[in-house]
Write a protein that binds this DNA or RNA. Structure first.
Lengths: 199, 199
DNA sequence: AATTAGTATATAAAATGTTATATACCTGAT
DNA sequence: ATCAGGTATATAACATTTTATATACTAATT
């Protein structure tokens, strides 16, 4: 998909596969993940294609590190990718599919699910807030006077926070609605939009 | 991943692989997609596992349809999946990764990208609004008096709308910030949070 | 001295997902 | 009549992702 392009973008500074993995976990977890068994062969392939160059570097803490650098062909490939415009794939939110099927559970099960969902996203949101707080503490220009590329990194962080805020708000609305006593009627007069498989 | 579970949830009513594909496209596009080359073998496998039963049905418009029904074991598997709580995977938003790398482009390229992004999500949002309008028109109880499972289908739709609204708002904030003349400084004093690969 | 934890790279096997292609049947348009 | 378009199923080939496993070196703990 776009892992090679993303690695290209991350290699603004030289880095090893292990470094890149750390970056995914620490700063990009809310919009991308990759594991080492994906990263290493991908870096290898990209070097063969001339997008990256690498050299070994002795490490104080373990075996030698293979440090990758973006070549000018790599930089051009990154620019080309960005110039093609945004790459929007359809999301795969299995938790939201689960919400669509919650009528299969009883009221208690539904509430339990929605509460668990809310907690999960509150946790995600707090992680991002932690990153923001840390950044803010060590950068006096944050957030009003960021230069590129920090400005764009901050944009991605802000989107994450906005998204989580929206989801948490939505969880509350769902919980409120499921708890509404008035129309606490079970299935029946349903026209069954949830399946979309009416014959 | 969870395609078998999702098919299980969708088979509240009997349906063919083709029907299920239509449902993905028409009603679940904003949170899941699957193609026929995935759906057919998966249904087959699930029947072998006893989660589904099927029978052929003559079709007026083409070759015979293989219609699948959820067995009681299938229903139980669905309940088990929902009882394990929300399945939240890390998102794969390559467009957001692209935003993080936008400092690679010049100002004009950045603005072009962000405008394209906003248009794209406005289009997505309008699609969902269309679905909502259609539903509202044919169901007099919409949206205040929905019974299950329509209630939960409506929850998923509302999340989509909230999410798109948040993203569009965020696009505007980004555009405004990139257009700000005051701090229109290029890279330089950056502490480079965007890469996270500082040595 | 042995274990545990962290850094670092790599491959094999399995599962998943995408793209391309093939078949077949029916309807409506050219 | 033929062709395009929609309905319907299926497989092959390819690409991607995940999980498991192996290796090797260092530092700190037990």
């Amino acid at each position: 998909m776009s892992l090679p392009h993303i690695l290209l973008g991350m290699l603004e500074q030289p880095a090893s596969g292990y470094d890149l993995k750390q970056s995914f976990e620490q700063q990009q977890a809310h919009y991308w993940s990759a594991n080492l068994a994906q990263i290493y062969p991908t870096l290898n392939r990209m070097e063969q294609q001339g997008l990256l160059a690498s050299h070994e570097q002795a490490s104080a803490k373990g075996p030698p590190r293979r440090v990758y650098t973006r070549t000018s062909a790599g930089r051009q490939a990154l620019i080309d990718w960005l110039r093609t415009g945004p790459e929007v794939h359809s999301d795969r939110l299995s938790w939201l599919a689960q919400v669509g099927f919650l009528s299969t559970l009883d009221r208690a099960g539904q509430l339990e699910f929605l509460h668990a969902l809310k907690s999960e996203f509150q946790r995600h949101r707090e992680e991002l807030l932690g990153i923001e707080a840390h950044w803010s503490a060590e950068d006096p220009r944050f957030p009003e006077h960021l230069d590129e590329p920090d400005l764009f990194a901050h944009f991605t962080l802000r989107l994450g926070l906005k998204k989580y805020a929206a989801i948490i708000e939505w969880c509350d609305e769902c919980l409120e609605r499921v708890n509404r006593p008035e129309t606490a009627a079970p299935a029946g007069a349903s026209t069954n939009k949830s399946q979309g498989t009416r014959p």
